[in-house]
Design a protein around this nucleic acid. Structure first.
Lengths: 337, 337
DNA sequence: GTGAAAGCGCTAACAG
DNA sequence: CTGTTAGCGCTTTCAC
């Protein structure tokens, strides 16, 4: 292993000079800098992470806590995680992957051991048990998701309230009067995951404002569950002409069922999905959808965390504005017979 | 921040004693141990990761390199990643998440900086550019996936050759004579990803042995691509009665298309999938399938890496035996007309 | 613009 | 069974 001291010797300078060349924290003559850089290259020097962390009290690591559960749409989580890792690298940080398994203890461990300079929490619940700890420690952090009480916290999320409103608006504008929402799995609501409830709020309040009728049914996802849910919806509200789906694993089954029942999309029934663009575009019908901007969320989270670590940055809630893309799955409501 | 020295003082012992209580590397009197443990608890002490890494030359971190691409089935990657993180914690290791973005440089950086004690590489290609570096450095590593040349490497993977063979066998045993394979996206084959080619080998050699006809077509996934692929297959081999799918995003579209064309599963056509159990069970038809044992792969990779780090463990290739689960999508071949 | 030297908090001989 | 001590490799005053 090649050390800073060896580089210094090879370049004929002192250790501190090499250190300063690396950090750029004081001016170095062009000549010296070049000699040092050359030595670094020739010897294949890499600063030792542990030593650096010890001396500087900075690990250049960001901890990312992902949920252990898999009842949420996994590709979105993965996309966020990868976006976080990629953005972090761009800022010179590595990412430590923590699973939800340790729960709140992970927060204690990370903060206590100084293994990471800050942390990003995904899949935050409305009343998340990790938050009290987070507020106690001075560990800078950013949440992806919105808890009930955001005081003293920095949060990044899609504006799900606006998302719900946007979906209803789009359908109402096309004349749909009876709209049904196929939601996430019941467990998601029971856990009081913020995004699911906020979407629902947006859906409800906007439909009240616009005077359209709204029915919401959670759905486990998969073909069988979707079949039951759809049957129940059409039974209760036979006039339903607009569907909003917020559960990726229900999308394709829903389309298959509608096809099977001879209901044409969008002639008989319009479908709006809340899902990643990829899902909307790969489905058997090009879906009008509001995208989940996974990459953007990951990137924002890192940017804000890095800002905090640099002493800039403040506690704030960043809600990303939803965007609805019209594709082939929505159209005018069929005339009432 | 509370340090080891403070704990020592609080407990009235020396620093080394505290260290040894923590590591268990020498015997401590019950009395002393209790006093120390009490102080640790009362002060809320957590060993500093950087200092520990520096002094012991061990970071207790495992680097996990995941691919940046998303043309592979992401949930499997995620499941493996989570299994790795979870197993690693069980061994006292944390996991550093590296994206493929840095490519081979990441190997250099990790090995050079000592930030991780070892690394796990996912999505290894047959002729992976990271492998030469890996062989040069003394960085212990485990690959998930199988490169062309495994000499000097430890690899963990599903036995995809046996998987292909197993699928063909199952269908042949039921009397199917014309079998078609709906494969991964063309890009996957072009990249020479090991698993795709090995599956194909298994499929081909076993069908040769069993005297059944086999047609292989890559497929991008999604509804449209699947429609084209299926049409082409049925055009070339109208008698095809057995389908093998190795592309999760083609599964549901395939089933929808078959339904739409009035081909009953499994009466008219049998379908075997190579996919995670969850996909096989959530599909609109319960699919006979060979599971991708993501968790097991992650766990194995960690176990082997930890063994290496402990000085046990050797270079070897671990192929996990495939298991075919019969569900509702396969049955006897229809009698030839 | 550069060097010397004092730690950062912990581990692991070495010494009793 | 326990204490003393010398680093691990780097950052950062302080001094010139």
């Amino acid at each position: 292993m090649v050390t800073l001291a060896e580089v210094a010797q090879h370049a004929g300078v002192s250790a501190s000079t090499v250190s300063y060349v690396l950090s750029g924290k004081r001016s170095i003559s062009a000549n010296t800098r070049q000699r040092v850089e050359r030595s670094i290259r020739e010897l294949g020097y890499h600063p030792n992470a542990g030593a650096r962390a010890l001396a500087s009290s900075k690990s250049n690591i960001i901890a990312l806590m992902v949920p252990l559960r898999t009842d949420m749409y996994v590709p979105v989580m993965m996309e966020i995680a990868i976006a976080v890792a990629t953005s972090a690298r761009a800022h010179g940080y590595d990412v430590l992957l923590l699973t939800g398994e340790e729960g709140p203890d992970a927060v204690r461990r990370v903060a206590g051991s100084g293994i990471a300079d800050g942390m990003i929490l995904m899949d935050v619940e409305l009343d998340d048990e990790r938050l009290p700890l987070l507020r106690e420690t001075d560990q800078p952090s950013v949440l992806i998701g919105l808890p009930a009480d955001t005081s003293g916290l920095t949060c990044v999320d899609l504006d799900f309230r606006a998302t719900g409103a946007l979906c209803v608006e789009h359908l109402a504008k096309q004349g749909h009067q009876d709209i049904a929402v196929i939601g996430e799995a019941p467990a998601v609501y029971e856990r009081h995951t913020g995004f699911a409830e906020r979407t629902l709020e947006g859906l409800r309040s906007r439909s009240r404002e616009l005077g359209v009728r709204l029915l919401h049914r959670p759905c486990e996802g998969g073909y069988d569950a979707m079949a039951v849910t759809l049957a129940r919806i059409l039974d209760e509200r036979p006039g339903t002409s607009g569907l909003i789906v917020q559960n990726e694993s229900a999308v394709e089954p829903l389309l298959a069922l509608l096809r099977q029942q001879g209901r044409a999309v969008p002639e008989d029934v319009s479908v709006v999905a809340i899902c990643p663009d990829q899902v909307a575009m790969q489905a058997s019908v090009r879906l009008t959808s509001v995208a989940i901007p996974a990459q953007e969320m990951g990137r924002h989270a890192v940017d804000h965390l890095v800002a905090k670590l640099d002493g800039r940055g403040s506690d704030e809630v960043v809600l990303i504005a939803p965007e609805l893309t019209v594709r082939g799955s929505t159209g005018p409501a069929p005339s009432r017979s």
